[in-house]
Design a protein around this nucleic acid. Structure first.
Lengths: 227, 227
DNA sequence: TAACCTACCAAACACTTGTTAGGGAAGTGA
DNA sequence: TCACTTCCCTAACAAGTGTTTGGTAGGTTA
């Protein structure tokens, strides 16, 4: 994606902890225990609204509307609008890196690694369309905030994985050596992730088919060459 | 770009008109005449802030800060935050279409047309980086508003030009016929315009050099093929 | 029945938002 | 000197913002 890095700090762990203990130093959230299923539901609708309107343009009242409740009621489940965003993004990144790490650990050749990463990316777009769209729009500004520093971490790890693979490919003479490698990296990265802005699940092509055609274009180009 | 269409309605003309006449039916803006140069200056700083923070996250007070004045003072030059955005985007689109129309009228072959359009696009990104970034982030949501309907118009015209050229190229056997043409369109379109998110003028590569390498990747792919 | 918990509502809070109204200082032209 | 214009400031406005507080209906457990 256009701005990413380390595998996210395991938010899903730190937060339930805060709920369980309810230390006297922690100011908010008494010992209520909202169900995780309902939280997931609400996060999904929140993600849709964020993706459609943009995070800042989305009011908590709009989210509540979409969820069929009043604004204040959201605060039974979450302690702020920001932490909804946080949970949406970190959940997405956690799952993304599960897939990526598996690919990177498989010991494939450079070309096959790129193919697997692209395919995996389109599958993530398919599964987390809203989260990816939010990430695309907001990550640049968010990563300045300490709370969302894990976005920068992820971005760095992301760049290392892709750039490294491309460099391996150049060394192994499977990728062209006459291109600026960082330009190539941004090219491949962006072409994949912008797709989240137009992709709709259940469309004409499956994620794997889109990945196949994208890879064909990126690797071999769109020009017809004489046989 | 990712969401575009017709050449913008000539805003630059309708508005000075409204100022000159000052009809009794027009509610606001008395007969003051702010200098166009100062307006341009302020629009440039506003565009930078919009691009950096996002339109909705940008308060008029932040713009005023960046311009070294107070929020209310902006309303001497503009009648709303929204009309600043309007002017930024329509000025950009006007210039963009000047370049595009010249290319399309030149009667080039399909491949040469794509090359010229891509090169022109990177030059526009170089000149209107902020406006392009704003356009990328906000056009999807804005085009729903009647005021910004010219964004949809531009998007349609844009798609027609690029898709038509690609189809001509397939018919002329200079582009591959085995790809989904709409996928190809989005691929080429997005690869070009996302560049606005990372491009900084005065960087390592000139716009023309970036265009050259991008074209090389898009047309011939990044894979090294046996000679 | 009583106690308790979950999930929401009703109503307000302090603050920020875009915008406006009434100036006033500095310059220009007569 | 006077009138006028340009450009900004001060101070406020109403609406909308995220968030909190104190409930309460309905279910579950004892």
């Amino acid at each position: 994606m256009s701005d990413n890095g380390r595998v996210p700090t395991n938010k899903p762990d730190t937060e339930p902890a805060a709920q369980r203990e309810a230390k006297p130093t922690a100011k908010k959230k008494p010992q209520v225990t909202p169900s995780p299923e309902r939280r997931r539901e609400l996060l999904d609708t929140a993600a849709e609204v964020f993706a459609a309107q943009g995070y800042n343009a989305t009011t908590v009242r709009k989210i509540a509307d979409a969820a069929g409740m009043l604004a204040g009621s959201l605060y039974y489940h979450f302690d702020s609008k920001e932490s909804m965003l946080d949970e949406i993004l970190s959940a997405f990144l956690t799952e993304l890196w599960e897939g990526y790490d598996a690919v990177l650990a498989a010991g494939l050749g450079p070309r096959e690694t790129i193919e697997a990463l692209v395919t995996e990316s389109f599958r993530e777009i398919d599964r987390h369309r809203a989260a990816v769209a939010i990430y695309q729009k907001e990550s640049r500004t968010l990563s300045a905030q300490p709370r969302f520093h894990y976005l920068s971490d992820s971005q760095q790890k992301f760049e290392k994985a892709w750039l490294g693979t491309l460099e391996r490919g150049v060394a192994a003479k499977v990728f062209r050596a006459d291109l600026d490698i960082r330009l190539t990296y941004r090219f491949v990265r962006d072409t994949v992730w912008v797709a989240a802005s137009w992709y709709r699940p259940g469309g004409q092509h499956s994620p794997d088919e889109i990945a196949r055609q994208y890879l064909s274009m990126v690797l071999d180009g769109i020009a017809l060459r004489p046989t």
